[in-house]
């Protein structure tokens, strides 16, 4: 029984979310990672920031109703997950996950706290944000990793960023938009399809 149950299985094929992803699935606060849930107090740990930008398709036209999901470490670079050896020290008030929905102009935004760096297998991961994008016409979920402009040395050593060809690496660095309404704000625009050098680099999933 046990043997049968643990037979090797092949994951199901991916599909697009299509045009009719339920609007009810997006609630106010879903894109706010500083709060574990809409009615929770914001975490006291870390520096808050806002990330905003657009999702665009070939030719630069905006993509409406794209779903973006952000996953990141807490302010000290930890995850509340068994794969993190320091999971028990992770911020209990930080989920690390949020979902944003692009408007008719293709605009999305997240609010979060800046993730910390961490060391794994002797290599240092620079502070980073993993973002998944889903939408109409995207049969496969695409994912990329975004880096902060304040850490050029850490970014230059990051084991994920350095897998990209050198001339594309700058494309995954967030734009510093300065303080907006008292909160440090970054910009990033996704181009799902375009020529090399303009199309957002994505990683295998």
């Amino acid at each position: 029984m046990e043997d049968l149950q643990h037979m090797r299985r092949i994951p199901l094929s991916q599909h697009t979310i299509g045009p009719f992803f339920p609007a009810d699935y997006f609630r106010p606060g879903d894109n706010d990672l500083t709060r574990l849930s809409a009615d929770a107090e914001p975490t006291g740990k870390g520096t808050p920031f806002v990330l905003t930008g657009t999702v665009r398709k070939e030719g630069g036209d905006p993509v409406a109703n794209a779903i973006l999901e952000l996953w990141q470490a807490d302010a000290a670079g930890r995850f509340r997950h068994p794969e993190d050896p320091e999971a028990d020290k992770a911020d209990p008030d930080f989920l690390g996950w949020g979902r944003a929905w692009s408007t008719i102009e293709g605009v999305y935004d997240f609010r979060s706290v800046r993730p910390g760096p961490y060391v794994e297998d002797g290599r240092k991961r620079a502070p980073h944000l993993n973002i998944i994008v889903m939408g109409i016409g995207l049969m496969r979920t695409v994912e990329t990793t975004l880096f902060f402009p304040e850490f050029p040395e850490e970014n230059a050593q990051d084991p994920v960023l350095t897998t990209l060809p050198e001339d594309l690496r700058h494309m995954l660095i967030l734009r510093d938009l300065g303080e907006v309404d008292g909160v440090q704000t970054y910009g990033f625009d996704f181009l799902l399809r375009g020529p090399r050098g303009l199309e957002t680099p994505f990683f295998e999933t």
Partner: peptide, 21 residues
Amino acid sequence: THTPSQPAYRRPLTRTEVTGP
């Protein structure tokens, strides 16, 4: 118009990729 034209880049899997909420 929405599918990336470039192949996705192979990356090492680190803690961020193998964890989730």
